[in-house]
């Protein structure tokens, strides 16, 4: 989202607060904070016009580290608080920082309603597939079978697929990034900000203490090439240094080898983030490769232009004022039926 007044060039440092950053050493949150500060500086919005709202969890400490307006609220409700904030003040640049527990478990309801209403805000969902702040219970995105303190015999809750959930809630901007790819992270944040409507950014974030290495397939040299698929609008879906690609066989996506001469990039699916059906298919690239799955897509799955709640609300106000005139308190108090006692 964006629409605020441009100001003289600011630096990432201008968005750092005086508070000591207290996340664990090695936590993916550090890298994300740095890129958010850089992205907000690059966007060119004045700090006083920016508001960061978070819920509860490790990631939700985020607002304390931003030299903007901010609120570290209560568990699961950042999305609801931000909705009221944006409805009241559509001029502000509103960022929601939340986690997989905060937004997909206790605050799941508010997240889907935020997405369908399409407030012009940015949702940064830090997904580490674990509960960190409460010291290591499984989360709604933890994979089946994961052994944690609260699942000593393995998780039996089927996990949420956050991007598919966002698409299901009719989100107008759905993307996935990862903490260890700062350039792509910053680029996507800027795109999310430019999008007019709710921008859903799922950020894979490593928790080095309770769930270390859970995303190593997508970060480690020798693994990430096979396991990650970067989606770019208008470009064919190729990966692994262009040795592999994705094509559709009917409605079924499959991996094709681009080295044998049988297939070329021209045979591959071309990414089109305006195509809802395609976004649906890509969001379902969710099984691990070793389980017969497909590479994990990163980038923007889907983007559409749809009216924003806060603008529609303001339109109604403008229309009411145009047709009835600005509210006259005396006329309102008097109502339509009066009588006089002498």
């Amino acid at each position: 989202m964006s629409e605020t007044i441009k100001v003289p060039k600011l630096k990432a440092k201008d968005f750092e607060s005086d508070q000591e950053v207290r996340w664990c050493p090695g936590c993916g949150d550090h890298a994300i904070l740095k890129q958010v500060q850089a992205a907000v500086a690059e966007i060119g919005v004045a700090p006083e016009n920016v508001v960061f709202i978070s819920g509860i969890g490790c990631s939700s400490r985020f607002p304390y580290y931003m030299n903007t307006y901010g609120m570290h609220s209560i568990h699961g409700r950042a999305t609801a608080i931000a909705s009221g904030l944006k409805a009241a003040r559509k001029d502000l640049s509103v960022w929601i920082v939340t986690g997989d527990g905060d937004s997909l478990s206790i605050g799941g309801n508010h997240l889907i309603h935020l997405l369908r209403r399409n407030f012009n805000v940015n949702v940064l969902l830090f997904n580490n597939e674990i509960y960190g702040l409460t010291k290591g219970q499984y989360s709604p995105t933890s994979p089946l079978g994961l052994n944690t303190k609260s699942s000593p015999m393995g998780v039996i809750d089927h996990p949420f697929n956050p991007t598919a959930l966002a698409l299901g809630a009719d989100a107008t901007f759905v993307s996935r990034v990862i903490d260890r790819d700062p350039r792509h992270l910053k680029k996507t944040l800027i795109e999310a900000n430019e999008h007019q409507g709710t921008s859903f950014v799922e950020i894979y974030q490593n928790c080095p203490v309770f769930n270390d290495g859970v995303f190593s397939n997508y970060t480690e040299r020798g693994l990430k090439e096979e396991h990650t698929l970067y989606m770019e609008a208008g470009k064919p879906l190729v990966y692994a240094k262009e040795t592999k690609g994705i094509r559709l066989n009917g409605l079924k996506p499959e991996i094709v080898d681009l080295t044998t001469g049988e297939f070329s990039a021209d045979d591959c699916l071309v990414h089109d983030p305006t195509d809802r059906t395609l976004a649906g298919i890509l969001s379902r690239f969710f099984d691990k490769l070793e389980d017969g799955g497909l590479p994990r897509p990163f980038g923007v799955f889907y983007q559409e232009d749809r009216f924003r709640y806060e603008e529609a609300l303001q339109l109604q106000i403008d229309e009411a004022m145009a047709s009835k005139g600005e509210g006259d308190l005396d006329a309102l108090l008097a109502g339509n039926n009066n009588w006089v006692i002498q």
């Binding site: 209560i74 609801a80 608080i81 904030l85």
Partner: peptide, 19 residues
């Protein structure tokens, strides 16, 4: 709002924003 909690939370957001 979608529920009672969102109703009060959104109002808190609006108050924070100066309404």
């Amino acid at each position: 709002a979608e529920d009672e909690i969102a109703a009060v939370a959104s109002s808190i957001g609006a108050s924070f924003a100066g309404s």
